[in-house]
């Protein structure tokens, strides 16, 4: 059997989808080796939409984009946060090495403004990364966004609710993020342009809390708060 396979490979009579994938897509490494590997040694697609679907904030989703944010701001390009659900905390971004001069937070009032803003940001040569929390979008709006993303050469990362996974999307990459532990995030690749979906991986979120990993739990001073709250 393997002889037959070797023969076919040498003759180059079999199309090898895996290799073709990374050739024509312009990509930007995610900075997480596990994720890059699962994506066929590529990364975030440039000039296309990427979606990250998650149930709640606070599971480490920003860690996903942090290496890219660091890299983009070092290059002097801008990072746009459009309609973030909470306040991006400046001291921590600063501590993580993200250049705050290159970070801009934009808030829009309606979908029309949001699409327009994303289009303008994505088209500008000063932009490096656009992150957006668009809420519910119609299929038409996503299509328009995809076209806007294609006009520029930037990474556009949309954070959307988990239930949107059922809706079809023209995004080039769709990831579903789910929490595993405090130091890891599980990612399912739902869709990947030029490649097969279905892979999954876990990325390490080493310094998310800034604590040495071994200190968890033991360092907490036990007290009356156990079971408090509820």
């Amino acid at each position: 059997m393997s002889e037959l396979l070797d023969h076919l490979m040498q003759e180059a009579s079999v199309w090898q989808g895996r290799r073709a994938a990374s050739q024509h897509l312009s990509v930007e490494a995610t900075g997480h080796p596990e994720l890059d590997h699962s994506l066929g040694d590529s990364g975030w697609p440039r000039g296309a939409l990427s979606e990250c679907l998650l149930a709640h904030e606070g599971i480490g989703e920003l860690q996903l984009a942090l290496p890219l944010m660091r890299r983009v701001t070092e290059r002097g390009q801008m990072v746009f946060w459009v309609n973030p659900p909470h306040t991006p905390y400046a001291p921590e971004l600063n501590r993580q090495g993200v250049g705050l001069d290159q970070v801009v937070v934009v808030r829009t009032e309606d979908d029309g403004d949001l699409l327009w803003t994303l289009e303008n940001c994505l088209r500008s040569p000063v932009t490096g990364l656009v992150m957006a929390w668009p809420g519910r979008l119609t299929a038409r709006a996503i299509r328009r966004l995809q076209l806007a993303a294609e006009a520029g050469d930037n990474v556009c990362l949309l954070f959307r609710a988990e239930k949107e996974a059922m809706q079809s999307s023209p995004a080039a990459l769709r990831l579903k993020a789910s929490p595993v532990s405090d130091t890891a995030l599980h990612l399912d690749i739902l869709k990947r342009r030029g490649g097969w979906p279905g892979q999954s991986c876990a990325i390490r979120l080493g310094d998310r809390t800034g604590l040495p990993e071994a200190t968890a739990a033991e360092s907490v001073v036990a007290g009356p708060w156990q079971g408090a709250g509820a």
């Binding site: 606070g58 909470h86 306040t87 921590e92 809390t209 907490v220 709250g229 509820a230």
Partner: peptide
Amino acid sequence: PRPLWLLRQPRPLSHAPTDWFSG
């Protein structure tokens, strides 16, 4: 070290957390 998200208004904690890490 701090979290990356800061809530605009502190939100009451409704369920007891499952794990405690530091503090």
